[in-house]
Structures are given as structure tokens and as C-alpha cells.
């Protein structure tokens, strides 16, 4: 579990993280999104007890990041943005080195690296020097390093960047497995498709502050409005869209189609179908226009930029 309360970090006069309060329950995948320099890495470093907060507090896996840094680090697996592998080492030596640092028992120290290498399809490259690894292989090895001590909390920075689609899927499945095993997982990423696929909850950070926080549906509802539906008919609608009354809000229309927002699709869609069918209109399809996290994210950032401009223009 991760809990923070008004977590703040200053570097001199620069405010890198500004009063972040959040809770991530076990078995949850939490995505932290934000532009470059927003404070994501600094937040992760505080949660790993690498940087000390200037104010506020954070508890990770039940331990305070300031008072119990060693205990926190023993229970956290971190995939850093830069993998920072030792190029002259062999993969198996590398994992063994970290297994020693995490004090894995002797049998596990030998077994666990092999299992992870096998799982990520690196079993054939055990004795290769890391300088010879491709970017994707390095990424997978770094992830294996993060999972080596079976941590309760995982902090993953861009977990599938530089990976081919097959490897990326493998890693996503591994992350879902960990979620099912009740691990607490926080991901920082610019890959919004992946974040949408994996995350139960999302936080957007900008200028060190959380500017939006919630499930994808809640964020989409709040920032880009209710779901958008598209109805296609077999014949021209002949201006019918203007006579639908207040049932739905039509936002766009063509000769044989229309798009409308509805806050309550379960009630509004059947009502609309009944009405159009009663008017003799044959409905070909009725579907929801898919909304992406990218749309939501860009809207969130746009609104915050607007607020920032307003703040600056105020005397």
C-alpha cells in the first residue's frame, strides 16, 4: 500500500512536488501521468526513500519513507527510467548481485533469477554481457531486477518502452499477474494507451501538483463530458435529429447518422431506439464513440494551462 499526505519536495527555491496526497491500495494499478518535469520521478524517488520530502509524509508497504528508509527499500521494486545496467557484467551475475543486496536466501538467490529470466524470455541470454543486450532485453532485465525480491510495492517508470509489441504484451500480463497477487503497483508513463489498458486509477501531475485524479470513466465524464453515442440509420433522417426533444443532446449529424451525448446510456439508448423504430426508421448500428485517455489527458492539461494563464494575468 502507498499512502502520502501533502508530500512536498523543494530543491532550493524550485518546488518539484507540491502537496501530493494519494492512497494506492494493494491489488491496484495506479498510473501517474504528466508532462516532462512535472514531478513524477521526484515523487517516485521519495516513495523509494531515495529523496527525503521537504514536508508532508509518505508510507510505503507500511513503513515511513523518512523514518524507515531501509525497510521501505527492501519492500519496493523499482524500474527506473534509465535502466543503468552494468555493461561489462553478465545477466546472471547482475541479478545475483542484486539478489545479494536484497538478502535473498541461498536457494532463492539461485532459483529466482533463472525463473524471471525464463519468464521474460531471456533464458538464452543468461551468460551474455549486458552491453550486448538490445534495448528491449535490457528493459526486461531491469524489470526482472525490480521483481527479484518479490516486492509488495512496485514503482515502474515506462515499463514497456523500447519493447516490441510481443514483449510489451508479456510485460503487461506480468503486471496484471502481480495485480492479481495483491501487489501495489504505480506506473509512471507517457504511453497513454497502455495506462488506459492497465490502470484502475489515474493521477495527472503538472507543476508538481495532482491536477486530476480518479478512474478513467470518472475523469472522462468530468473533462470531456458524458459518453458520445453514434447512431446510423438505413435511410436519410430528414431533420429528425432536431425533433428528438430533450431525450439526448445531439452534437453532430449527417444525412443518415447522428451523434449525441447521454449521461445515462442504459435508459436513453433504448428509449431512443423505441422512438425511431416507432417512426419507421431502420437502425443499422448504435455504438459508443470510444474516448481515449489521450483525449482526457490533453483536456486536463489544457484546462490547467488555462487556469495557470488566469493566475498569471491576475494583478
Amino acid at each position: 500500500m502507498i499512502e502520502t499526505y501533502e508530500l512536498t519536495k523543494r530543491f532550493g527555491s524550485f518546488l518539484a512536488v507540491d502537496q501530493i496526497t494519494l492512497t494506492v491500495e494493494p491489488g491496484t494499478i495506479f498510473a501517474i501521468l504528466g508532462p516532462n518535469g512535472a514531478g513524477k520521478t521526484t515523487t517516485v524517488r521519495m516513495l523509494t526513500s531515495i529523496l527525503a520530502p521537504t514536508s508532508g509524509w509518505a508510507r510505503v508497504a507500511g513503513f515511513d519513507v523518512v523514518r524507515n528508509p531501509t525497510e521501505v527499500r527492501a519492500r519496493v521494486g523499482v524500474l527506473t527510467e534509465q535502466h543503468g545496467l552494468y555493461q561489462r557484467m553478465r545477466a546472471i551475475e547482475y541479478l545475483d548481485f542484486f539478489a545479494q543486496l536484497y538478502h535473498l536466501p541461498a536457494d532463492l538467490r539461485h532459483r529466482r533469477p533463472l525463473e524471471l529470466m525464463q519468464h521474460f524470455g531471456l533464458a538464452d541470454a543468461l551468460d551474455k554481457r549486458l552491453g550486448e543486450y538490445s534495448k528491449g532485453m535490457q528493459q526486461k532485465l531491469a524489470l526482472a531486477r525490480a521483481l527479484l525480491h518479490d516486492p509488495a510495492v512496485l514503482l515502474l517508470d515506462e515499463p514497456t518502452s523500447a519493447m516490441d509489441p510481443q514483449s510489451a504484451r508479456l510485460v503487461r500480463e506480468a503486471i496484471r499477474d502481480l495485480q492479481r497477487a495483491e501487489r501495489t503497483i504505480a506506473i509512471t508513463t507517457h504511453n497513454l494507451v497502455e495506462a488506459q489498458m492497465l490502470a484502475d486509477r489515474i493521477a495527472v501531475i503538472r507543476r508538481g501538483r495532482i491536477i486530476a485524479h480518479g478512474t478513467f470513466d470518472a475523469l472522462a465524464q468530468r473533462f470531456i463530458g458524458p459518453p458520445l453515442m453514434e447512431l446510423r440509420a438505413a435511410h436519410p433522417l430528414n431533420g429528425l435529429a432536431d425533433n428528438l426533444g430533450g431525450a439526448v443532446t445531439v452534437v453532430d449529424q449527417g444525412e443518415c447518422w447522428l451523434r449525441y451525448h447521454t449521461a445515462n446510456p442504459a435508459a436513453d439508448n433504448p428509449a431512443l431506439i423505441r422512438r425511431l423504430t416507432g417512426l419507421g426508421i431502420e437502425i443499422v448500428t448504435l455504438s459508443e464513440i470510444s474516448r481515449t485517455l489521450e483525449d482526457v489527458y490533453l483536456q486536463i492539461v489544457r484546462e490547467d494551462e488555462g487556469l495557470e494563464r488566469d493566475d498569471k494575468s491576475e494583478p
Partner: peptide, 14 residues
């Protein structure tokens, strides 16, 4: 400089 320090700093080493 090679950015390999951070994974080491994230371990329980004091």
C-alpha cells in the same frame, strides 16, 4: 554519469 547509480540507491543498502 552512466545512470546506473539509481537502481543501487533503491536497494536496502545504507
Amino acid at each position: 554519469e552512466r545512470l546506473s547509480l539509481e537502481p543501487l540507491l533503491a536497494t536496502p543498502l545504507t
